[in-house]
Design a binder for these strands. Structure first.
Lengths: 222, 222
DNA sequence: TTAATTAATGTTGTCGACAATTTAGACCTA
DNA sequence: TAGGTCTAAATTGTCGACAACATTAATTAA
Protein backbone atom coordinates (compact mmCIF):
# COMPACT_ATOMS: atom_id res chain seq x y z
CA UNK A 1 0.00 0.00 0.00
CA UNK A 2 1.72 3.10 -1.19
CA UNK A 3 1.38 6.78 -1.79
CA UNK A 4 -1.62 9.02 -2.13
CA UNK A 5 -0.50 10.33 1.23
CA UNK A 6 2.10 12.29 -0.66
CA UNK A 7 1.41 15.39 -2.69
CA UNK A 8 -1.98 15.27 -4.40
CA UNK A 9 -1.06 17.31 -7.44
CA UNK A 10 2.32 17.76 -8.96
CA UNK A 11 3.22 18.71 -12.47
CA UNK A 12 4.82 15.89 -14.35
CA UNK A 13 8.42 16.70 -15.22
CA UNK A 14 9.52 15.42 -18.54
CA UNK A 15 12.98 14.99 -19.93
CA UNK A 16 12.42 18.09 -22.06
CA UNK A 17 11.61 20.11 -18.96
CA UNK A 18 14.85 19.18 -17.25
CA UNK A 19 16.91 19.77 -20.35
CA UNK A 20 15.25 23.11 -20.96
CA UNK A 21 15.97 24.23 -17.40
CA UNK A 22 19.58 23.04 -17.64
CA UNK A 23 20.29 24.87 -20.86
CA UNK A 24 18.48 27.98 -19.69
CA UNK A 25 20.61 28.04 -16.58
CA UNK A 26 23.76 27.62 -18.66
CA UNK A 27 22.76 30.53 -20.87
CA UNK A 28 21.72 32.88 -18.09
CA UNK A 29 24.87 32.17 -16.11
CA UNK A 30 27.01 32.71 -19.19
CA UNK A 31 28.30 29.15 -19.44
CA UNK A 32 26.97 29.23 -22.97
CA UNK A 33 28.12 32.54 -24.40
CA UNK A 34 25.60 34.90 -25.90
CA UNK A 35 25.75 34.79 -29.67
CA UNK A 36 27.03 31.24 -29.78
CA UNK A 37 25.37 28.54 -31.80
CA UNK A 38 23.29 25.79 -30.27
CA UNK A 39 24.08 22.63 -32.18
CA UNK A 40 21.34 20.06 -31.77
CA UNK A 41 23.58 17.04 -32.15
CA UNK A 42 26.18 18.48 -29.83
CA UNK A 43 23.68 19.26 -27.09
CA UNK A 44 22.08 15.90 -27.70
CA UNK A 45 25.24 14.02 -26.78
CA UNK A 46 26.15 16.45 -24.01
CA UNK A 47 22.84 16.03 -22.17
CA UNK A 48 22.38 12.40 -23.16
CA UNK A 49 18.97 12.80 -24.75
CA UNK A 50 17.58 12.57 -28.24
CA UNK A 51 17.47 15.45 -30.66
CA UNK A 52 13.70 15.65 -30.28
CA UNK A 53 14.16 16.61 -26.64
CA UNK A 54 16.76 19.18 -27.54
CA UNK A 55 14.51 20.68 -30.19
CA UNK A 56 11.70 20.92 -27.70
CA UNK A 57 14.01 22.67 -25.24
CA UNK A 58 15.25 25.07 -27.89
CA UNK A 59 11.68 25.92 -28.78
CA UNK A 60 10.99 26.91 -25.21
CA UNK A 61 14.18 28.91 -25.04
CA UNK A 62 12.93 30.77 -28.07
CA UNK A 63 9.71 31.49 -26.20
CA UNK A 64 11.77 33.10 -23.41
CA UNK A 65 13.48 35.28 -26.00
CA UNK A 66 16.80 33.74 -25.01
CA UNK A 67 17.39 32.11 -28.36
CA UNK A 68 16.75 32.94 -32.00
CA UNK A 69 16.14 30.33 -34.65
CA UNK A 70 16.41 30.41 -38.41
CA UNK A 71 14.87 27.71 -40.55
CA UNK A 72 17.39 25.19 -41.84
CA UNK A 73 20.19 27.10 -40.17
CA UNK A 74 19.80 26.65 -36.44
CA UNK A 75 19.54 28.45 -33.14
CA UNK A 76 21.84 31.01 -31.56
CA UNK A 77 21.84 32.50 -28.11
CA UNK A 78 20.42 35.96 -28.42
CA UNK A 79 22.93 38.77 -28.39
CA UNK A 80 21.45 42.18 -27.79
CA UNK A 81 23.05 45.29 -29.15
CA UNK A 82 23.37 48.16 -26.70
CA UNK A 83 20.31 49.68 -28.35
CA UNK A 84 18.42 46.43 -27.96
CA UNK A 85 19.25 46.36 -24.30
CA UNK A 86 17.96 49.90 -23.86
CA UNK A 87 14.77 48.90 -25.66
CA UNK A 88 14.38 46.00 -23.29
CA UNK A 89 14.67 48.29 -20.30
CA UNK A 90 12.10 50.63 -21.78
CA UNK A 91 9.66 47.76 -21.84
CA UNK A 92 10.52 46.84 -18.29
CA UNK A 93 9.81 50.41 -17.28
CA UNK A 94 6.34 50.15 -18.69
CA UNK A 95 5.44 46.65 -17.57
CA UNK A 96 7.03 46.63 -14.15
CA UNK A 97 5.72 50.11 -13.50
CA UNK A 98 2.29 48.70 -14.13
CA UNK A 99 3.08 45.72 -11.93
CA UNK A 100 4.06 48.01 -9.07
CA UNK A 101 0.84 49.97 -9.40
CA UNK A 102 -1.23 46.79 -9.35
CA UNK A 103 0.84 45.43 -6.49
CA UNK A 104 -0.02 48.50 -4.44
CA UNK A 105 -3.64 47.74 -5.16
CA UNK A 106 -3.67 43.99 -4.76
CA UNK A 107 -0.93 42.73 -2.47
CA UNK A 108 -2.12 41.29 0.81
CA UNK A 109 -0.71 42.54 4.10
CA UNK A 110 0.99 39.17 4.54
CA UNK A 111 2.77 39.54 1.23
CA UNK A 112 3.82 43.06 2.09
CA UNK A 113 5.17 41.85 5.41
CA UNK A 114 7.21 39.21 3.63
CA UNK A 115 8.48 41.86 1.26
CA UNK A 116 9.71 43.91 4.22
CA UNK A 117 11.43 40.87 5.64
CA UNK A 118 13.16 40.40 2.33
CA UNK A 119 14.41 43.96 2.45
CA UNK A 120 15.76 43.43 5.96
CA UNK A 121 17.69 40.43 4.76
CA UNK A 122 19.01 42.42 1.85
CA UNK A 123 20.11 45.22 4.14
CA UNK A 124 22.20 42.72 6.06
CA UNK A 125 23.72 41.27 2.94
CA UNK A 126 24.63 44.67 1.61
CA UNK A 127 26.46 45.50 4.83
CA UNK A 128 28.34 42.22 4.92
CA UNK A 129 29.17 41.52 1.33
CA UNK A 130 28.10 44.07 -1.20
CA UNK A 131 28.05 41.54 -3.95
CA UNK A 132 25.21 39.19 -3.16
CA UNK A 133 22.52 41.76 -3.41
CA UNK A 134 23.01 42.76 -6.99
CA UNK A 135 22.81 39.29 -8.38
CA UNK A 136 20.03 37.40 -6.72
CA UNK A 137 18.51 39.96 -4.37
CA UNK A 138 17.47 42.54 -6.86
CA UNK A 139 15.97 39.94 -9.13
CA UNK A 140 14.11 38.43 -6.23
CA UNK A 141 12.71 41.80 -5.22
CA UNK A 142 11.36 42.54 -8.66
CA UNK A 143 10.11 39.01 -8.92
CA UNK A 144 7.95 39.35 -5.82
CA UNK A 145 6.40 42.58 -6.96
CA UNK A 146 5.56 41.02 -10.28
CA UNK A 147 3.82 38.16 -8.53
CA UNK A 148 2.05 40.64 -6.26
CA UNK A 149 0.30 42.36 -9.15
CA UNK A 150 -2.09 39.40 -9.48
CA UNK A 151 -2.53 39.96 -13.21
CA UNK A 152 -1.88 36.49 -14.56
CA UNK A 153 -1.26 37.66 -18.10
CA UNK A 154 1.32 40.15 -16.92
CA UNK A 155 2.97 37.62 -14.65
CA UNK A 156 3.27 35.16 -17.48
CA UNK A 157 4.61 37.78 -19.85
CA UNK A 158 7.32 38.83 -17.43
CA UNK A 159 8.21 35.67 -15.55
CA UNK A 160 8.37 33.16 -18.34
CA UNK A 161 8.88 35.82 -20.94
CA UNK A 162 11.47 38.54 -20.88
CA UNK A 163 12.68 38.14 -17.34
CA UNK A 164 15.32 35.53 -17.99
CA UNK A 165 16.74 37.76 -20.64
CA UNK A 166 17.08 40.51 -18.07
CA UNK A 167 18.71 38.10 -15.69
CA UNK A 168 21.19 37.09 -18.35
CA UNK A 169 22.38 40.62 -18.87
CA UNK A 170 22.32 41.31 -15.17
CA UNK A 171 24.80 38.51 -14.69
CA UNK A 172 26.98 39.65 -17.55
CA UNK A 173 27.04 43.33 -16.69
CA UNK A 174 26.60 43.36 -12.93
CA UNK A 175 25.96 46.51 -10.93
CA UNK A 176 28.67 48.99 -10.16
CA UNK A 177 29.59 50.09 -6.65
CA UNK A 178 27.54 53.12 -5.62
CA UNK A 179 24.51 51.89 -7.53
CA UNK A 180 24.09 49.02 -5.07
CA UNK A 181 23.08 51.09 -2.09
CA UNK A 182 21.03 53.61 -4.02
CA UNK A 183 19.13 50.76 -5.64
CA UNK A 184 18.42 49.40 -2.20
CA UNK A 185 17.02 52.73 -1.05
CA UNK A 186 14.83 52.84 -4.12
CA UNK A 187 13.49 49.42 -3.28
CA UNK A 188 12.61 50.61 0.20
CA UNK A 189 10.74 53.59 -1.18
CA UNK A 190 8.77 51.38 -3.55
CA UNK A 191 7.73 49.03 -0.78
CA UNK A 192 6.74 52.00 1.32
CA UNK A 193 4.46 53.25 -1.45
CA UNK A 194 2.94 49.81 -1.84
CA UNK A 195 2.37 49.62 1.88
CA UNK A 196 0.52 52.94 1.75
CA UNK A 197 -1.55 51.69 -1.18
CA UNK A 198 -0.30 54.66 -3.15
CA UNK A 199 -0.64 53.21 -6.61
CA UNK A 200 0.55 56.18 -8.59
CA UNK A 201 3.62 56.70 -6.46
CA UNK A 202 4.51 53.03 -6.60
CA UNK A 203 4.41 53.05 -10.37
CA UNK A 204 6.34 56.27 -10.61
CA UNK A 205 9.08 55.09 -8.27
CA UNK A 206 9.39 51.75 -10.02
CA UNK A 207 9.66 53.39 -13.41
CA UNK A 208 12.29 55.75 -12.11
CA UNK A 209 14.16 52.91 -10.46
CA UNK A 210 14.35 50.98 -13.72
CA UNK A 211 15.22 54.14 -15.61
CA UNK A 212 18.21 54.65 -13.32
CA UNK A 213 19.32 51.10 -14.02
CA UNK A 214 18.91 51.77 -17.69
CA UNK A 215 21.06 54.87 -17.51
CA UNK A 216 23.62 53.02 -15.48
CA UNK A 217 23.86 50.39 -18.17
CA UNK A 218 23.83 52.91 -20.97
CA UNK A 219 26.81 54.69 -19.41
CA UNK A 220 28.61 51.43 -19.03
CA UNK A 221 28.12 50.63 -22.68
CA UNK A 222 28.93 54.10 -23.98
CA UNK B 1 -10.44 39.03 -46.27
CA UNK B 2 -6.90 38.11 -45.54
CA UNK B 3 -4.47 40.38 -43.84
CA UNK B 4 -0.89 39.47 -44.30
CA UNK B 5 0.99 40.44 -41.19
CA UNK B 6 4.18 38.72 -42.13
CA UNK B 7 6.95 40.98 -43.18
CA UNK B 8 8.39 40.46 -46.62
CA UNK B 9 10.31 37.32 -45.89
CA UNK B 10 13.05 35.78 -47.88
CA UNK B 11 13.21 33.13 -45.18
CA UNK B 12 12.76 29.50 -46.01
CA UNK B 13 9.27 28.27 -45.29
CA UNK B 14 9.11 24.85 -43.76
CA UNK B 15 6.22 22.49 -43.43
CA UNK B 16 5.98 23.45 -39.78
CA UNK B 17 5.65 27.10 -40.74
CA UNK B 18 2.73 26.45 -43.04
CA UNK B 19 0.99 24.18 -40.57
CA UNK B 20 1.50 26.68 -37.78
CA UNK B 21 0.00 29.48 -39.86
CA UNK B 22 -2.94 27.28 -40.89
CA UNK B 23 -3.81 26.26 -37.38
CA UNK B 24 -3.33 29.76 -36.05
CA UNK B 25 -5.70 31.07 -38.65
CA UNK B 26 -8.24 28.41 -37.73
CA UNK B 27 -8.02 29.34 -34.08
CA UNK B 28 -8.18 33.10 -34.55
CA UNK B 29 -11.15 32.80 -36.90
CA UNK B 30 -12.95 30.50 -34.51
CA UNK B 31 -12.90 27.43 -36.74
CA UNK B 32 -11.25 25.69 -33.84
CA UNK B 33 -13.25 26.67 -30.79
CA UNK B 34 -11.54 28.22 -27.82
CA UNK B 35 -11.15 25.70 -25.05
CA UNK B 36 -11.13 22.73 -27.40
CA UNK B 37 -8.40 20.15 -27.36
CA UNK B 38 -5.73 19.91 -30.01
CA UNK B 39 -5.16 16.23 -30.67
CA UNK B 40 -1.78 15.64 -32.26
CA UNK B 41 -2.80 12.54 -34.19
CA UNK B 42 -6.01 14.15 -35.38
CA UNK B 43 -4.28 17.28 -36.64
CA UNK B 44 -1.57 15.09 -38.09
CA UNK B 45 -4.01 13.30 -40.40
CA UNK B 46 -6.01 16.46 -41.07
CA UNK B 47 -3.03 18.43 -42.33
CA UNK B 48 -1.24 15.46 -43.83
CA UNK B 49 2.00 15.87 -41.92
CA UNK B 50 3.82 13.96 -39.23
CA UNK B 51 3.26 14.45 -35.54
CA UNK B 52 6.66 16.10 -35.24
CA UNK B 53 5.45 18.92 -37.46
CA UNK B 54 2.25 19.28 -35.45
CA UNK B 55 4.17 19.38 -32.21
CA UNK B 56 6.41 22.08 -33.61
CA UNK B 57 3.35 24.08 -34.65
CA UNK B 58 1.71 23.64 -31.25
CA UNK B 59 4.87 24.86 -29.59
CA UNK B 60 4.72 28.06 -31.58
CA UNK B 61 1.04 28.48 -30.84
CA UNK B 62 1.97 28.26 -27.20
CA UNK B 63 4.49 31.04 -27.75
CA UNK B 64 1.66 33.23 -29.11
CA UNK B 65 -0.33 32.51 -25.96
CA UNK B 66 -3.03 30.95 -28.11
CA UNK B 67 -2.61 27.47 -26.69
CA UNK B 68 -1.85 25.96 -23.30
CA UNK B 69 -0.06 22.68 -22.84
CA UNK B 70 0.16 20.23 -19.99
CA UNK B 71 2.79 17.52 -19.89
CA UNK B 72 1.44 14.11 -20.86
CA UNK B 73 -2.02 15.53 -21.26
CA UNK B 74 -1.97 17.74 -24.31
CA UNK B 75 -2.77 21.18 -25.64
CA UNK B 76 -5.99 23.18 -25.51
CA UNK B 77 -6.93 26.42 -27.19
CA UNK B 78 -6.74 29.10 -24.57
CA UNK B 79 -10.04 30.23 -23.13
CA UNK B 80 -9.87 33.47 -21.21
CA UNK B 81 -12.22 34.22 -18.39
CA UNK B 82 -13.81 37.68 -18.46
CA UNK B 83 -11.26 38.71 -15.85
CA UNK B 84 -8.46 37.33 -17.96
CA UNK B 85 -9.65 39.34 -20.91
CA UNK B 86 -9.70 42.51 -18.83
CA UNK B 87 -6.17 41.74 -17.69
CA UNK B 88 -5.10 41.38 -21.29
CA UNK B 89 -6.53 44.78 -22.15
CA UNK B 90 -4.73 46.32 -19.21
CA UNK B 91 -1.48 45.11 -20.67
CA UNK B 92 -2.42 46.44 -24.06
CA UNK B 93 -3.09 49.81 -22.46
CA UNK B 94 0.42 49.88 -21.13
CA UNK B 95 2.29 48.47 -24.09
CA UNK B 96 0.38 50.10 -26.90
CA UNK B 97 0.35 53.37 -25.04
CA UNK B 98 4.10 53.15 -25.01
CA UNK B 99 4.10 52.20 -28.68
CA UNK B 100 2.05 55.29 -29.53
CA UNK B 101 4.43 57.51 -27.63
CA UNK B 102 7.43 56.04 -29.41
CA UNK B 103 5.61 56.20 -32.73
CA UNK B 104 5.11 59.94 -32.24
CA UNK B 105 8.83 60.18 -31.72
CA UNK B 106 10.08 57.82 -34.39
CA UNK B 107 7.66 57.47 -37.28
CA UNK B 108 8.85 58.94 -40.55
CA UNK B 109 6.70 61.41 -42.45
CA UNK B 110 6.19 58.76 -45.12
CA UNK B 111 4.81 56.33 -42.59
CA UNK B 112 2.53 58.98 -41.16
CA UNK B 113 1.27 59.78 -44.63
CA UNK B 114 0.47 56.12 -45.17
CA UNK B 115 -1.30 56.05 -41.86
CA UNK B 116 -3.49 58.93 -42.99
CA UNK B 117 -4.25 57.13 -46.22
CA UNK B 118 -5.29 54.11 -44.21
CA UNK B 119 -7.69 56.25 -42.20
CA UNK B 120 -9.21 57.64 -45.38
CA UNK B 121 -9.85 54.14 -46.61
CA UNK B 122 -11.39 53.23 -43.30
CA UNK B 123 -13.66 56.27 -43.43
CA UNK B 124 -15.00 55.03 -46.75
CA UNK B 125 -15.51 51.52 -45.46
CA UNK B 126 -17.36 52.74 -42.42
CA UNK B 127 -19.76 54.71 -44.60
CA UNK B 128 -20.39 51.85 -46.98
CA UNK B 129 -20.43 48.81 -44.77
CA UNK B 130 -19.97 49.35 -41.09
CA UNK B 131 -18.67 45.86 -40.59
CA UNK B 132 -15.29 45.80 -42.26
CA UNK B 133 -13.72 48.33 -40.04
CA UNK B 134 -14.12 46.61 -36.76
CA UNK B 135 -12.60 43.36 -37.84
CA UNK B 136 -9.58 44.01 -39.97
CA UNK B 137 -9.33 47.77 -40.01
CA UNK B 138 -8.92 48.39 -36.34
CA UNK B 139 -6.37 45.65 -36.03
CA UNK B 140 -4.49 47.00 -38.99
CA UNK B 141 -4.42 50.48 -37.50
CA UNK B 142 -2.99 49.29 -34.23
CA UNK B 143 -0.59 47.10 -36.12
CA UNK B 144 0.91 50.02 -37.99
CA UNK B 145 1.42 52.06 -34.89
CA UNK B 146 3.14 49.16 -33.24
CA UNK B 147 5.52 48.86 -36.16
CA UNK B 148 6.04 52.61 -36.10
CA UNK B 149 7.46 52.57 -32.59
CA UNK B 150 10.73 51.12 -33.90
CA UNK B 151 11.42 49.27 -30.65
CA UNK B 152 12.15 45.77 -31.90
CA UNK B 153 11.63 44.14 -28.55
CA UNK B 154 8.24 45.75 -28.19
CA UNK B 155 7.25 44.89 -31.74
CA UNK B 156 8.17 41.27 -31.19
CA UNK B 157 6.33 41.13 -27.88
CA UNK B 158 3.14 42.49 -29.40
CA UNK B 159 3.14 41.18 -32.95
CA UNK B 160 4.20 37.61 -32.45
CA UNK B 161 3.15 37.63 -28.84
CA UNK B 162 -0.20 38.70 -27.51
CA UNK B 163 -1.64 40.27 -30.60
CA UNK B 164 -3.13 37.16 -32.12
CA UNK B 165 -4.88 36.52 -28.85
CA UNK B 166 -6.43 39.96 -29.11
CA UNK B 167 -7.46 39.27 -32.68
CA UNK B 168 -9.10 36.04 -31.61
CA UNK B 169 -11.33 37.74 -29.11
CA UNK B 170 -11.95 40.60 -31.48
CA UNK B 171 -13.40 38.13 -33.95
CA UNK B 172 -15.44 36.37 -31.31
CA UNK B 173 -16.86 39.46 -29.65
CA UNK B 174 -16.95 42.01 -32.44
CA UNK B 175 -17.63 45.67 -31.86
CA UNK B 176 -21.09 46.98 -31.20
CA UNK B 177 -22.74 49.66 -33.31
CA UNK B 178 -22.02 53.12 -31.93
CA UNK B 179 -18.54 52.08 -30.86
CA UNK B 180 -17.50 51.79 -34.48
CA UNK B 181 -17.62 55.47 -35.32
CA UNK B 182 -16.30 56.66 -31.97
CA UNK B 183 -13.37 54.30 -32.32
CA UNK B 184 -12.67 55.78 -35.71
CA UNK B 185 -12.64 59.29 -34.29
CA UNK B 186 -10.25 58.16 -31.61
CA UNK B 187 -7.94 56.77 -34.25
CA UNK B 188 -7.96 60.09 -36.04
CA UNK B 189 -7.05 61.92 -32.85
CA UNK B 190 -4.18 59.55 -32.20
CA UNK B 191 -2.76 60.02 -35.66
CA UNK B 192 -3.09 63.75 -35.25
CA UNK B 193 -1.04 63.64 -32.08
CA UNK B 194 1.58 61.50 -33.76
CA UNK B 195 1.73 63.92 -36.65
CA UNK B 196 2.34 66.77 -34.22
CA UNK B 197 5.06 64.74 -32.50
CA UNK B 198 3.16 65.14 -29.27
CA UNK B 199 4.39 62.04 -27.50
CA UNK B 200 2.52 62.45 -24.26
CA UNK B 201 -0.78 63.13 -25.94
CA UNK B 202 -0.36 60.18 -28.30
CA UNK B 203 0.22 57.85 -25.38
CA UNK B 204 -2.65 59.27 -23.41
CA UNK B 205 -5.10 59.01 -26.28
CA UNK B 206 -4.05 55.47 -27.10
CA UNK B 207 -4.44 54.38 -23.51
CA UNK B 208 -7.84 55.95 -23.34
CA UNK B 209 -8.83 54.38 -26.64
CA UNK B 210 -7.98 50.93 -25.40
CA UNK B 211 -9.61 51.62 -22.07
CA UNK B 212 -12.85 52.42 -23.89
CA UNK B 213 -12.60 49.14 -25.75
CA UNK B 214 -11.99 47.42 -22.47
CA UNK B 215 -15.07 48.97 -20.91
CA UNK B 216 -17.09 48.09 -23.97
CA UNK B 217 -16.08 44.49 -23.61
CA UNK B 218 -16.58 44.48 -19.87
CA UNK B 219 -20.15 45.69 -20.32
CA UNK B 220 -20.77 43.05 -22.92
CA UNK B 221 -19.58 40.34 -20.56
CA UNK B 222 -21.38 41.63 -17.46
C1' DT C 1 -24.30 -0.13 -3.95
C1' DT C 2 -20.02 2.08 -3.57
C1' DA C 3 -15.37 2.58 -3.39
C1' DA C 4 -11.07 1.14 -4.71
C1' DT C 5 -8.10 -1.62 -7.73
C1' DT C 6 -6.88 -3.39 -12.02
C1' DA C 7 -7.07 -3.90 -17.01
C1' DA C 8 -7.64 -1.75 -21.51
C1' DT C 9 -7.35 2.01 -24.50
C1' DG C 10 -5.77 6.11 -26.32
C1' DT C 11 -2.58 10.11 -26.06
C1' DT C 12 1.72 12.24 -25.46
C1' DG C 13 6.94 11.81 -24.90
C1' DT C 14 11.13 10.01 -26.81
C1' DC C 15 13.94 7.74 -30.01
C1' DG C 16 16.82 6.59 -34.22
C1' DA C 17 16.82 6.92 -39.24
C1' DC C 18 16.20 9.22 -43.50
C1' DA C 19 15.32 13.48 -46.48
C1' DA C 20 16.04 18.33 -47.49
C1' DT C 21 18.84 22.19 -46.95
C1' DT C 22 22.82 24.83 -45.84
C1' DT C 23 27.75 25.36 -45.56
C1' DA C 24 32.69 24.55 -46.59
C1' DG C 25 36.06 23.39 -49.58
C1' DA C 26 37.93 21.70 -53.92
C1' DC C 27 38.13 22.69 -58.46
C1' DC C 28 37.82 25.15 -62.52
C1' DT C 29 37.75 29.54 -65.40
C1' DA C 30 38.74 34.10 -66.88
C1' DT D 1 44.27 36.16 -57.95
C1' DA D 2 39.35 36.79 -57.97
C1' DG D 3 35.25 34.90 -58.85
C1' DG D 4 32.12 31.37 -59.62
C1' DT D 5 30.48 26.30 -59.90
C1' DC D 6 30.14 21.97 -58.18
C1' DT D 7 30.88 18.32 -54.91
C1' DA D 8 31.08 16.65 -50.14
C1' DA D 9 30.21 17.12 -45.36
C1' DA D 10 27.49 18.59 -41.73
C1' DT D 11 23.18 20.36 -39.92
C1' DT D 12 18.36 20.82 -39.58
C1' DG D 13 13.59 19.12 -40.94
C1' DT D 14 10.50 15.25 -41.14
C1' DC D 15 9.02 10.68 -40.46
C1' DG D 16 7.24 6.24 -38.35
C1' DA D 17 7.75 3.26 -34.32
C1' DC D 18 8.03 2.37 -29.57
C1' DA D 19 7.85 3.73 -24.51
C1' DA D 20 5.71 6.26 -20.78
C1' DC D 21 1.85 8.21 -19.05
C1' DA D 22 -3.19 9.53 -18.41
C1' DT D 23 -7.86 8.29 -18.90
C1' DT D 24 -11.60 5.33 -19.18
C1' DA D 25 -13.81 0.81 -18.56
C1' DA D 26 -14.09 -3.40 -16.24
C1' DT D 27 -13.54 -5.89 -12.07
C1' DT D 28 -13.38 -6.86 -7.39
C1' DA D 29 -13.91 -6.03 -2.27
C1' DA D 30 -16.24 -3.91 1.42
Amino acid sequence: MTLNYTKPIEQAITSSDKTFLSIRYAIVEGDIASGSKLSETELSTKYGVSRAVIREAINRLETCHLVERKANVGARVVSLTPDGLIELYQIRESLEGMAARLAAKNMTSEEIAELNQLLDIHAEKVKQEGSYYQEAGDVDFHYRIILGCKNKQLISLLVDGIYHLVRMYRVQLGMSGPRITTAFDEHKAIVSAIQNKDEELAEMLMRRHIMYSKNNIANKLA
